[in-house]
């Protein structure tokens, strides 16, 4: 083995179930391989670390062709809730942790969790709105400092 990845910085920018999980799986997987990992939450991705919201992350049932579901049907009241429930149930069967549990686990692996300052300001949030595992609210410049020497993955 000559080429190895030593460090990854993963950006989570979306607030849907399918927008959040991939970044979490990649961060957790990186740590399992002994790779240093940092997670950065920006824009609607902040919901993943928002105390009041991260237990209520929903699957996007509108504008999601991968679901093979009529967009109009996806927009009906309650459909997103039902589909999210179904997806969560399937994941639970596979022992995939819920988003709050997964994030806590990733923090326990030693990965860094950070919130994007521009988005925090935009949404009028503060450090107190986030789960305790969030280490800091940082600027894009500070992000690049932390990401230096590693791979950057945007999701």
């Amino acid at each position: 083995m000559t080429d190895t990845i030593e460090k990854v910085s993963i950006i989570i920018s979306k607030g849907s179930l399918e927008g959040i999980y991939p970044g979490l799986i990649m961060a957790n997987g990186a740590r399992a391989e002994g790779i240093e990992a940092n997670l950065f939450f920006t824009f609607f991705g902040l919901d993943a670390i928002h105390k009041a919201r991260n237990e209520h992350i929903k699957l996007a049932t509108v504008g999601n062709p991968g679901l093979h579901f009529a967009t109009m049907a996806g927009g009906l009241p309650g459909v997103s809730t039902v589909m999210t429930h179904y997806m969560n149930h399937k994941m639970e069967k596979l022992d995939i942790p819920s988003i709050p549990e997964f994030i806590e686990m990733i923090a326990d692996t030693g990965a860094g969790l950070y919130a994007c300052k521009a988005s925090v300001d935009l949404f009028g949030l503060e450090k107190n709105d986030f789960i305790e595992q969030v280490q800091d609210i940082i600027t894009v410049g500070e992000f690049y400092e932390k990401a230096a020497g590693g791979e950057i993955i945007f999701t």
Binding site: A32, E33, G34, M105, D108, T109
Partner: peptide, 17 residues
Amino acid sequence: VSIKELYQLFPKGPAKV
């Protein structure tokens, strides 16, 4: 052994190492 402690014991990846 908790996840936190597992990574302290095996920093290069607990399951793998």
